[in-house]
Design a protein around this nucleic acid. Sequence first.
DNA 1: GAACGCAATAGTGTCGACACTTTCTTGACG
DNA 2: CGTCAAGAAAGTGTCGACACTATTGCGTTC
Lengths: 257, 257
Amino acid sequence: MTETSEPTPTDILPSGAEIETRRSADGSERAYNTIRKLLVEFKLKPEERINEVHLAKTLGVSRTPIREALNRLASEGFVSLTPNRGFFVRSLSTEGLLDLYELRSIIECAAFRLMCDRADDDQIDRLRGYWDAIVDGYRDHPPDVILTEDEGFHLLIAELSGNPELFNQLSAINARIRFIRRIQIEHRSHNKNQVSSHSAIVAAAIRRDVEGGVELLRQHIEMTVSATQQALKDALLKVFSPSEPTARKHRGRPRSA
Amino acid sequence: MTETSEPTPTDILPSGAEIETRRSADGSERAYNTIRKLLVEFKLKPEERINEVHLAKTLGVSRTPIREALNRLASEGFVSLTPNRGFFVRSLSTEGLLDLYELRSIIECAAFRLMCDRADDDQIDRLRGYWDAIVDGYRDHPPDVILTEDEGFHLLIAELSGNPELFNQLSAINARIRFIRRIQIEHRSHNKNQVSSHSAIVAAAIRRDVEGGVELLRQHIEMTVSATQQALKDALLKVFSPSEPTARKHRGRPRSA
DNA sequence: GAACGCAATAGTGTCGACACTTTCTTGACG
DNA sequence: CGTCAAGAAAGTGTCGACACTATTGCGTTC
């Protein structure tokens, strides 16, 4: 039994990334980005054990940069590390996601509050400008673009809060929920509401209406959450539909996160 | 000039950790803990470039586990990584710290809110019990103990919020500001206030007084911040006082954080 | 034929080596 | 004297190899 269901190297690579033979272009960084992409796109499935040698062959580098990337991803919550047993893809549980959304809501509301307090009119105008520039075609853009634009909107608020830590936190959270948001946006069930939400948030910012804006944001995110509930079911279906055998359970307690 | 001011291996090691010759005890994890300790205790100074080979020799392991540890520490904001130039100790700037405290305040207030909302009476009683058990000798404990107890108190609130992400976030933040908190506690300037603050917060939790408790927390942390301002000056003095030549500036932009 | 070991296999954790890049030193030139 | 360039030294990034651990598969025993 050399290998049966095991995918051969290259078959899980995103189309964009081909194996590089020449030595250049920072392997560790590239590995990080590629693996991250694999995780976001479910090419590596939840709970699955990550085989370093296989991954290394696939990316055409040695295990060293792979492990460095995986360690970074572990700190960021994408994978978990169990000593002597290796890395596992973070599980795809509903509760975990809701916790993450809750955290996101906390961070964003605080950011909005601070932005109203500290940003000058020019900066608020940057927010308005950002949204005005994309609002027109918004709903008709491809999912990936919508996702980027939406994240950009919220990240801009975090940036205008004047506290870079908030920006960083939100970036990290975004990365972790991107995979599900992508699916959710493909649903397109509530994208219309999203547009009006964003516009309303901008308006509140211009009015410096802290409480109103915070409430809007909270609702906006909560709405996203409920949409996510449905999307999650689809995701589970999508991920495990090719009758792939469910990854085996593992004992032991993963380290950190 | 082989080495003059360069510290020889072993002279920066915390007394607890001696070089292990035998192979066991998970080198990467141990390296992580040791380096983290060095950072917290200013044995590695802000802005300083980290020499991997030197560190490896000091810890008695090869560079591989060192690099794994440093990558983790980079994700957690302790050090930064500039490609081809290596790891640098995170800088010790006032603004950065204030941002971190602000984030901490946001997380903690949200956690308190959620705790009041979701924790049952038994859980609230755990908080009361935790504080009752340590309140007596609190002010007379050694700084490290106070720090652990204080962090434990706040972490317990985060835990009782029912959202593990909040707990994780707060843990990460705590780790990053621990070095300065330690110095600040040695000051002991406001430890008395701290005791009454904690008691008041517990009381608010028992009353399920969300707004009151949040306000107390906010003040509690703000007070800590102002104490930190002073502590920071001391820290800078302490760190750079042995007339150590200031680490040289470096060009280039560090990656991530 | 189910449970239990035991050998074989697969996979992680760490090492030392080396290529490439950055930084320091030295010495020629203005 | 200061500037610059070339070479030397130091240091990072990656590799392949190997030791040790976990897992799988097989044969034995009850």
